[in-house]
Amino acid sequence: MKKLISILLISSFLISSTEFYQILKVPFLLEHFKEHKSLNEGTTFWSFLSMHYSNNDIKYADYDKDMRLPFKSSEGSLHLLSISFIHYSSTTKLHKPFAKTLKTYKVFNDHKFQSTYLSNIWQPPKSC
């Protein structure tokens, strides 16, 4: 039961948020191929795919059917939604300009620091 639920959840995620939903259009691809095959007996599946998916953007009489083929057009099923909420309290005054003062800090470069720990780093391990 868990396996079935997992498969259903993963499938629904893939179909709703990726281009995986195009796989659902494969039966229409086969039906459209049969139409072309009935019109011309010499049509192979490879010639059908090259006619519809090559970079030749020729608009045939069945252009509307061609655009319903899988991976032919992107219908934009992937929507990114970003919502941000900004909380303004009643004491916030929006009409005053915001000015930030910069603080300066002193940096001390003391090169006299020597660590005896670091000088012993390349020594072989000692037993306890």
Rank of each mutant, 00 (worst) to 15 (best):
L81P: 02
D57I: 04
I58T: 15
S73F: 01
S54A: 11
G76M: 04
L78M: 12
I58Q: 12
M67K: 03
E75M: 04
H79A: 08
S77Y: 13
F71R: 02
F48Y: 15
Y63D: 15
S74P: 00
L80T: 14
S47A: 04
I83C: 05
S74D: 15
F45K: 04
Y60H: 11
S74Y: 05
S84Y: 08
S77P: 07
S84P: 00
S77W: 10
S84A: 09
M51Y: 14
D64W: 01
E75Y: 01
M67Y: 01
A61H: 12
H52E: 14
H52K: 11
F48G: 04
K72T: 00
S74V: 01
Y63H: 15
T44A: 08
S73Q: 14
L80F: 12
S74A: 04
L49R: 04
H79K: 15
Y53L: 03
F45S: 08
M51F: 14
L49G: 02
N55E: 07
S77K: 13
L78A: 01
L81E: 11
S47P: 01
I58K: 13
S47F: 04
N56A: 13
F45D: 11
S50Q: 10
S74I: 07
F71I: 09
K65Q: 09
S47L: 05
A61Y: 13
N55L: 11
M67H: 01
L49Q: 08
S74W: 03
I83V: 15
M51N: 07
S73E: 15
R68L: 10
I83S: 06
I83T: 10
Y53K: 03
F45E: 13
S50P: 00
S82W: 07
M51H: 12
Y63G: 01
S74G: 03
K65E: 07
L81V: 09
N55Q: 03
N56C: 06
K59Q: 14
S84M: 08
F48K: 06
S54I: 05
H52I: 05
L80P: 02
S54K: 09
F45M: 09
K65C: 01
S54V: 08
I58L: 11
K65D: 05
